[in-house]
Design a protein around this nucleic acid. Structure first.
Lengths: 245, 245
DNA sequence: CAGTGGTCTAGACCACGAT
DNA sequence: TCGTGGTCTAGACCACTGT
């Protein structure tokens, strides 16, 4: 295809060399200067090709040293099973189903109250007095997601939900003990470019995509008892959902 | 934030002017030359700011004339209800639930057989002899998705599934009549940059993101009778799924 | 034909990391 | 200190659109 832009041609060529194993995961990758010389193009063009691969998550880029071919394996996040009663009812945190074989840590936990939540939160919960739980999830040393959870202060105040460690089964198990067992769930997901502050927190390139998942959890009597907004590095995840007709 | 790049500053500023209504949906937007003069930057910088907004779906860009502020409202695609028995069992195509109030058309339908399907298709269906249905979905004049469906030729050959119009209830209703009613479903979704050929078909900018959804449909006896790969313009959709604990 | 978007060149400056 | 990535300038050429 002679009509294809140079930067795209170069990106495709380099991508093929990753797929073929010529550049192996965890090893060095050509710098922009080397690409300039290899393909005989200007700086901007070489950088645009590099940006493609970085944005796609194929290479990891740091100032001061050459890029490295990524060895990341995406996380499979199953919407249904991770929230099933079997899991969070039997002493497992809902995250367990995602990364059973991955090294996981939860960092930067903060808990607090606010009376000025985002409008969609206030509308969903039916109150402005909410407890906010904020945390960052790190897998294999890589930040992959942060999540903001909101609960009615009326329910959560003075309970283990206010603590950093909410105990076995997590927030949902505590809600169950309080008589507000979540049974109905709805998630809405969209994709958009990451915003600068989000990119900083997730230590990801500024031109990458995030998945925004907003979840509502309600009791059997349809009272919404928790809403969460999750911000995921799109290159780190595959979302899965299973259901029956 | 003095440390923010110029192109980002400009993009944020222009975005704010869209949000505030200074540039109204459907109306003209500054060209790159106007942005160059407004902000006193070079061509490349102005273009990078414009590319941000175009990539986010906020403006529509055509060579030869100024950009236009987009008036698109995202499609809500509900994974669960759109596949419920009530819908496709009662004479509605599964798409109906998505766009009940939108002008929808299905274009570029092609049906054929192949003995060299993608590996994941052959593995899921347990055969290399498959029927392929390919179609493009257009909403309000905008291509928003194309989908490739694969069924075992053994089941679909000689049935209405081979026709462009599969009749009331679509493919799943025909499968039900043939004794292969789909009852178990699994979807896997990931986001990545659109590829050049995909962008051409969806008439979307080359730097945008697509959502790739792979669905498996199986009978109650766990025979996989259909798999589909859907390619969605990520700016056109919000994905929704509802479930119970 | 003029204006526009898409791409590209050949430089430049800065911040950062490894040595 | 030197190579790297991130950004930016001031031009240029081409393809396309509307007048």
């Amino acid at each position: 295809m002679a009509s294809m832009p140079k930067f795209e041609q170069i990106a495709i060529d380099l991508r093929a060399k990753i797929d073929s194993g010529e550049f192996a995961p965890g090893h060095a990758f050509p710098s922009d200067r080397e690409i300039r010389e290899l393909y005989g193009v200007a700086s901007v063009t070489a950088r645009k090709a590099l940006a493609e691969l970085r944005s796609a998550g194929l290479i990891e880029v740091r100032q001061g040293s050459s890029p490295i071919v990524s060895s990341w394996r995406p996380i499979l996040r199953d919407t249904t099973t991770r929230l099933s009663t079997q899991l969070w009812g039997s002493g497992h945190a809902i995250w367990d189903a995602d990364v059973a074989d991955r090294a996981l840590s939860v960092e930067q936990i903060s808990v607090g109250e606010t009376s000025t939540p985002p409008p969609w939160v206030a509308e969903a919960l039916g109150t402005n007095e909410v407890l906010v739980r904020d945390r960052l999830f790190v897998v294999d040393g890589r930040p992959v997601q942060f999540a903001l959870s909101y609960l009615p202060a009326e329910i959560a105040r003075g309970t283990a939900i206010e603590r950093h460690d909410t105990g076995p089964g997590g927030t949902f198990a505590r809600l169950q003990e309080l008589g507000f067992a979540p049974e109905l769930f709805q998630e809405r997901t969209r994709a958009r470019k990451v915003q600068p502050e989000e990119a900083r927190r997730l230590r990801m390139p500024a031109d990458r995509t995030v998945l925004i998942i907003r979840r509502r959890a309600a009791t059997a009597s349809r009272r919404v008892v928790e809403v969460t907004e999750m911000t995921l590095d799109a290159t780190a995840y595959v979302l899965q959902t299973s259901f029956t007709a």
